[in-house]
């Protein structure tokens, strides 16, 4: 069953089409990779899906709800959560408080929120950082904190915007494991990533964007052997 349907979505900034006529579907439980060269419109598409921009044209259907015009907070309440390419820790709050803010989306009790938060903190492996200020964490742990925080909102669909960006290979490997663990819990994920090896490993399907348009869609094997994709990345003729 499709959990997310993107139907002919376009987004214009003035005369510039950041996304034009993008359509694809996501099945519950899958990991969808979203790749494309810089400026292909990946993050814009994320922003349209999560309510930061209304799409100029087209429709986004999530779990039976039409998402057009919904604000990010309503999107989150419906069960869709995103992380940010540039991490956004609540710097002067502790790690547990950061994650509790996410958990408070589902409960009014601080006690319950703290329990939920602690559980997610252990899932991402920040158990020894609970009382540290978020602003004091190194980049790798900040990325994990972002994931813990969105997990605490109990999403059905998770959108991860370059969670491996700026990480060393060991840290990337931890995040890959984390993404696969999250898949095992049953949460559907859409992942923007530049690390091709990683994205080929984790994705069930991949959508390739180029200059705002959908260039290709398929499973990882189909994508690596697709001539249009190779041209887009290597520059073609």
């Amino acid at each position: 069953m499709a959990i997310l349907e993107i139907k002919h979505v376009s987004k214009f900034f003035g005369g510039l089409a950041a996304n034009s006529d993008v359509s694809f579907e996501m099945v519950s439980g899958m990991i969808m990779g979203l790749i494309g060269p810089n400026g292909a419109g990946k993050t814009t598409l994320f922003n349209c899906i999560t309510g930061y921009y209304p799409p100029s044209r087209g429709e986004i259907i999530f779990d039976g709800h039409r998402m057009n015009g919904l604000h990010p907070d309503a999107v989150c309440k419906l069960g869709m959560a995103r992380t940010w390419q540039k991490v956004r820790p609540l710097a002067k709050m502790s790690v547990v408080d950061n994650v509790m803010v996410g958990a408070l989306c589902r409960t009014n009790s601080l006690k319950k929120a703290r329990e939920m938060a602690m559980e997610k903190i252990h899932v991402v492996g920040l158990g020894n950082r609970v009382k540290f200020l978020a602003g004091s964490l190194p980049i790798g742990e900040r990325k994990k904190l972002e994931v813990a925080r969105v997990l605490a909102t109990q999403p059905k669909l998770l959108l991860l915007d370059e969670v491996m960006g700026g990480l060393n290979p060991a840290e990337s490997e931890e995040i890959i494991q984390l993404i696969l663990d999250i898949k095992n819990i049953g949460i559907t994920q859409m992942v923007i990533e530049h690390d091709m090896k990683a994205i080929m490993r984790i994705s069930d399907r991949i959508v390739v964007l180029n200059s705002g348009e959908k260039l290709a869609e398929g499973n990882p094997q189909e994508i690596v052997s697709n001539k249009a994709v190779v041209d887009a990345y290597l520059g073609g003729e």
Partner: peptide, 16 residues
Amino acid sequence: QAIREDQDAAHSLGIN
């Protein structure tokens, strides 16, 4: 406090 620290992050965590 979440709003103080980062409005966009707060917004995406379900805070109106």
